[in-house]
Design a protein around this nucleic acid. Sequence first.
DNA 1: CAGAATCCTTTGCGATACTG
DNA 2: CAGTATCGCAAAGGATTCTG
Lengths: 128, 128
Amino acid sequence: MAEPLDPEMFDPVCPSSAMPIHIGDKWTGMVVLCLEGGRRRFNELKGPLRGITPKVLTQTLRAMERDGLVTRTAYDENPPRVEYELTPLGRSLLTLIEAARAWSKDHLPALLQARQGHDAAPGPRLLR
Amino acid sequence: MAEPLDPEMFDPVCPSSAMPIHIGDKWTGMVVLCLEGGRRRFNELKGPLRGITPKVLTQTLRAMERDGLVTRTAYDENPPRVEYELTPLGRSLLTLIEAARAWSKDHLPALLQARQGHDAAPGPRLLR
DNA sequence: CAGAATCCTTTGCGATACTG
DNA sequence: CAGTATCGCAAAGGATTCTG
């Protein structure tokens, strides 16, 4: 249905935690991106979502399903197969993610630099 | 310098917690909005930020200062006066907030409805 | 394969009281 | 006025193990 997901599509060293904008909870935005190209199976998602535990991935997907962002389709086969797919509502988040990316491209370096400068300061710089 | 802040500028019943997008931590986005119209004093911010404790407001402002989003200016007076102001970087977040608002205007009702429908469902609807 | 069950640690946030 | 100092809790997320 779609190319395999690139296991390295998310840079583990990327300072995304510094981003002042977040989509849903920790993994939600990445899940949306993983599903952008089409439906994916549970274990397929675990590739790029490096280090996510099945418990947390399940939680994340269930919450997204509840909010109408993804659909879950279970096929009655053995071994089991379950596929997740973005709904139009879920797809609408892509515009927000794009806005976040644009912001980070334009401003994240400045934020990081401010943070680093602040951290490097020996202390509350007393006037002298 | 600016009109007093409307103590009710944030609707306490607003389902912002349902929003799949967040600016910084819990209070950051609201602080940015409070500072949009100009510099504000510490206790002035506590008005619209209903229920925030001084500890948490201090934390929030310190984190924002560290990231270069606000500046803090302390005047050597008695009683003390401290003013916070958005930097251009902090101001750049307004575009993101605007994007979030646009998204929520267009899609949040659908999300809320999906959630409500899901919660009302008696159980995993087995095919029959 | 796609989870469920259990346990545990971290962090965010709040309540309350005190201070230069 | 503008904070600081403690205490405490609940929730998010992770590690590990087990199963239809």
